[in-house]
Write a protein that binds this DNA or RNA. Structure first.
Lengths: 113, 113
DNA sequence: ATTACATGGTTTGTATAACATAATATGCCA
DNA sequence: TGGCATATTATGTTATACAAACCATGTAAT
């Protein structure tokens, strides 16, 4: 994340799952996509993103497979599993709840509009 | 936090500073207040809250002083410092920005209303 | 009075998460 | 050939949240 240290530890998996829920993607691409889709606000260093992908794969929330470009360049494409989709739904619920809690504590000082 | 593990690591200091910005409070009271003010959504175990308070005090964001109740019971009251207020303003800004980023990624699926 | 529960705080050990950094390697363009 | 973007892996560090155990006091119920 691009913030002062770790303001939002724990959101990264949800972000990754959410992006992958729109279609398979490989690590590097995913990193760029996260930045772009979040309006350059969210950003995961590779030292964060790749280990996170390994972790999500180990938990069977995503599945990876090697592919090669026409020029023999290898990429590992990840797709979300059905277990991952369930997890994502759960995480979205949690985020929503958290958001509600923060809103109660901080008031509308937190919301953009 | 009451969530599945640590969805929102890093928010705890901001929450504590925010609550303390309304007036001095001691640890135990603060814990209860966080739960109440967040509609029972947010919750910090004492193993989280007290070390966090020591840490914030070491950083001079809050200041603690011992007081006694009429019945000789000791409590450590914490108040936010001016440095803490600055930090809080900054953290609020970050939270707001983060919120904007998450909204972009997740769409209105995240927002309650 | 004894038990039980809420209050109030400290400390230790553990697991997780995000980070920077370095290493490795390829594709492409000037 | 040099430099930059692409692509992945691995290491070591730091920060954070947690549970659990511990200590101690106040108060209400039995």
């Amino acid at each position: 994340m691009k913030f002062e240290s770790q303001l939002l530890k724990g959101v990264a998996p949800a972000v990754v799952l959410q992006i992958l829920s729109r279609g398979p993607m490989y690590g590097y691409e995913l990193g760029k996509e996260i930045e772009q889709r979040s309006g350059e606000i969210l950003s995961l260093g590779k030292g964060t993103l790749y280990p996170l992908l390994y972790n999500l794969e180990a938990k069977r929330l995503i599945r990876g497979r090697w592919e090669k470009t026409s020029s023999d360049r290898k990429r590992r494409y990840y797709s979300i599993t059905s277990k991952g989709k369930e997890q994502l739904a759960s995480q979205r619920g949690q985020l929503k709840e958290l958001n509600a809690g923060l809103k109660l504590v901080f008031g509308r000082a937190l919301m953009p509009a």
